[in-house]
Design a protein around this nucleic acid. Structure first.
Lengths: 128, 128, 128, 128
DNA sequence: GTGGTCTAGACCACG
DNA sequence: GTGGTCTAGACCACC
């Protein structure tokens, strides 16, 4: 198993799966060409419905992260810089930072957190 | 009017309102003691239902940002450092940073973005 | 001033006032015959509406704790054992105990808390 | 049916539902993993609106008693000792005890009532 | 099927 | 006037 679901997470399950796989790609744990486990495999591992996993895979395909070939599984696609609306990316960052400020953290403290997180994301880390 | 709703925003309306007010508090635009406009007022301004605004206000109350007194309106509460599970705060930051990495941004570029956003949050800025 | 309002209290203000005065009577701090401060006095002290205090006094009168004479203020009535539906009294106790159990406290621990509280209630303590 | 509403109860309906379920959890009648009946089911059983039940369920979720999964029902969460401000827990107990004293009950009598109630709460009892 | 959100409108409780 | 609760009914998102 390479993914775990968080019970207290508010995101839909399919989103947790998609985000989890994206994070693994971002960290380099799933290099180009890797074959993802089958939809049925993941569904069984996580004890969830098959359709839920399928939705996650479809999202990854639509966003260009994996290539799904009917009957042949899903493989990690070559990594191409995606074209995304920058404002769309800025919004969650802004929300996250607002929460940290309201929690009483200082700007320098937050910047340090960000540096640490970025360092973690850029090295091949463990999957947990 | 002090809030605007984004049509393309995926968050529920009541969440946009709550988050918007939190952002104003974080920026210092709504100092302690300020009385918020009534739920009816906000509902009329935004062209939405009264109950939707009430849900947002109730969330702000439960999270300790405002003191709601039945029959007497809602006022910004004294700002006390909230006790929150740090891991709970880290999660959205981590997700946001992952998206930025996947979009092809470099770590130094992201750090610069963070610095700019923090600067914006810490000055009494425009309401938008 | 002999009463304070708790901002984070969910009870209506008039109820906080009535309950507060009842607690003072229970502790013996307001013996029979004591004249309560006027409605206007209390309202000014607490910075609240005159009507709110009047509602509290009316409730105390209806429950027999004070005798209100038009133009002559309100005085603490002789303490007579009230006839109350026992089930009505049991309900808040039961709810309070349920909360304590769910918070993880043990039965002996709760019994000890009760003993301490009862001891506090039965000695003339400070007003706070 | 596993819950009944009291007509003479002053608490809002959604609160009665939430408190009722909490009491069942406290007594052990709803062990971890139990799936709660759907909001529609409960609403039909009690003859009330669907939204009213939904509010109760949402409260239970926010307080960590149940895990609600969109589209998959609500299940009793693993019971973790909640982190709550002790003063917050003491307040209702203190109010309840004050009422009992004022009704003329003696301290030993009250202690006995508490013991009985605690015994009831700690055995898997009848649902009433 | 499930829960989540929103609307419209009513009535109540509080200050 | 204020906010709180409840209903009725709609539509959406999720599993």
């Amino acid at each position: 198993m390479f993914l775990t679901l968080q019970d207290n997470d508010k995101r839909p399950i399919y989103q947790q799966i998609a985000d989890g796989i994206k994070a693994l790609i971002a960290r380099g744990n799933l290099p180009e060409g890797t074959t993802l486990p089958s939809v049925r495999q993941v569904a069984a591992d996580l004890g969830i419905n098959l359709n839920t996993v399928a939705v996650a895979y479809r999202q990854l395909q639509e966003e260009g992260f994996v290539a799904v070939r009917h009957g042949a599984g899903a493989v990690i696609a070559p990594r191409t810089p995606r074209v995304v609306d920058p404002a769309e990316l800025l919004k969650p960052l802004r929300t996250a930072l607002t929460q940290l400020i309201l929690a009483g953290l200082s700007a320098p403290g937050i910047e340090e957190m960000v540096r640490q997180e970025l360092a973690l994301l850029q090295q091949k880390g463990d999957t947990r």
